[in-house]
Nucleic acid binder design. Structure first.
Lengths: 189, 189
DNA sequence: AAAAACATTTGCCATATGGCAAAAAACGAT
DNA sequence: ATCGTTTTTTGCCATATGGCAAATGTTTTT
């Protein structure tokens, strides 16, 4: 739980008692490779924090192709916000790419913490804003650069991820086919 | 100011007195076509709400090309969040694409409202989360679809925008060249 | 109304990426 | 270690998009 505590404290201060309360609601959970953390068509029921492993968010486009929208790695929050916040069905899958160790909060517990701990909502808001801003920032360059540049930027941004995910996931994230990605990789020194 | 009031009330309730206080801080402002609302290298000083007109967020990539990251139209908030929240220099320009009428709040006033009005922070959080989620949702499909599909989706998502912005802005938003976009348009019935 | 400035379209050809199928390599289970 | 499965690479050719420059069309200024 140390990772989670450190993560939270980056965004604001809580006293020992408040932090303890948060931790009593935190449940540790294993998610095996390929299993889903949340699924399209269902309502997201948990907020997660990845201690170990990589997840991805993916969906099927109108041609039926499976598209990876983004990757989430260690020490990050994982939650389908739109679904969780608004109690609506999710439009994407959140899937473990490797075996994952995750800390989860049920929706009821999460809500209780928001109602109970003064200042927790502000911290949560900061965490979420930062994550969303980062998401936008990471996806934007994917549109305007050529495929090789996109791949190189990905390597810089996610050095920990690149060798742990199948090429096909990465290719759809970058918006190219797997064979193109393979060729691009070959041409990099 | 009616537009702003309606917009706010979508996200939560405020009494008359609270709303009046907000409106005392709101200043109306004109921004002429091509002028900047905020600039790269400077710290964003205002939160804006577009009453009329279209703005865009743009930056220069490492090849020196000007890239439009997104468009913002009527009845939406406009602010470089990362810069405004953290007091750091902005990395992008926010520019009026057409003449704009905007309601603005200075940073000091905005902060005062947050400190004074109970519940205003929650409303602001909701507004911002929704805007960010929307931004992510809008950019994601740009990566995985072909250019024609991207253009068609843009038309659906921004019917009000498409005929009011130069082709070059739209092309860089879609990640293609202006001439390709011109050809794509020609081939659409 | 004419001129100038700007925006869009088009032609020509180069290049990047896609589609598909087979080969090669890597991984897992027995 | 071996077989079977899955992932990655490669070859071949088709197609989409880019680059550049000229032509056309549109707006703004004088």
């Amino acid at each position: 739980m140390k990772e989670l505590v450190n993560y939270i404290l980056q965004f604001g201060n809580l006293n020992q008692q408040q932090m303890d309360l948060i931790l009593t609601k935190a449940k540790e959970k294993e998610i095996k490779k390929e299993e889903y953390f949340s699924e399209a068509g269902k309502i997201a029921a948990e907020v997660g924090f990845i201690i170990d492993g990589i997840m991805r968010v993916c969906y099927y486009n109108n041609k039926g192709e499976e598209i990876t929208k983004y990757f989430i790695d260690e020490n990050n929050l994982v939650v389908d916000l739109e679904s969780f916040d608004n109690n609506i069905c999710s439009s994407a899958y959140v899937q473990a790419v490797t075996d994952c160790k995750v800390i989860v909060f049920s929706k009821a517990d999460w809500q209780e913490l928001l109602d109970t701990i003064v200042g927790w909502d502000t911290i949560v808001h900061k965490i979420i804003s930062k994550a969303l801003i980062q998401k936008v920032a990471r996806r934007s360059p994917l549109v305007s650069e050529d495929a090789t540049t996109r791949y190189l930027s990905f390597m810089e941004m996610f050095p920990k991820v690149i060798n742990r995910v199948p090429l096909s996931y990465l290719a759809s994230y970058l918006g190219i086919t797997q064979s193109s990605l393979s060729r691009i990789r070959k041409n990099i020194p």
